[in-house]
């Protein structure tokens, strides 16, 4: 029974995170294209992102959605292609989620407060 609930939740969280990611990626790409159209330097970018609550909030959501979405997919691939046991695949997924979140948030921190 645990398997049934786990699989259903995995599917649900992957769907929800995909919805968030679809929106975030669009905003992310549009912002990049808009911001660099006249050739911004690294200093100019940092001058705009430092202390920006909007930037911090948006990219925190983006990083969280990645940290949810990617490990679920990787766990699935690991189970199906590498034949890993669900518990092992879950362990890898949790470690990957933590890694993605820490790396992502450290990048956000560097842009906003670094």
């Amino acid at each position: 029974m645990a398997d049934v609930v786990r699989e259903t939740r995995r599917w649900y969280w992957q769907r929800v995170s995909a919805l968030v990611l679809a929106l975030c990626v669009l905003v992310h790409l549009a912002t990049i294209i808009y911001a660099v159209r006249s050739g911004l330097s690294a200093e100019a970018i940092l001058a705009r992102t430092r202390g920006s609550v909007t930037f911090a909030a948006f990219y925190t959501i983006f990083v969280a959605a990645c940290a949810v979405h990617v490990p679920i997919g990787i766990a699935r691939v690991a189970e199906e292609w590498l034949g890993l046991a669900p518990r092992t695949a879950d362990g890898i997924a949790h470690a990957l989620a933590l890694l993605l979140f820490v790396l992502g948030m450290s990048a956000v921190y560097a842009m906003v407060a670094g």
Binding site: M1, D3, V4, R6, E7, T8, R10, W11, P86
Partner: peptide, 11 residues
């Protein structure tokens, strides 16, 4: 729903 969800089911 319990029978069709999960690893061997729709997911």
């Amino acid at each position: 729903l319990r029978a069709v969800a999960g690893d061997a089911g729709c997911h």
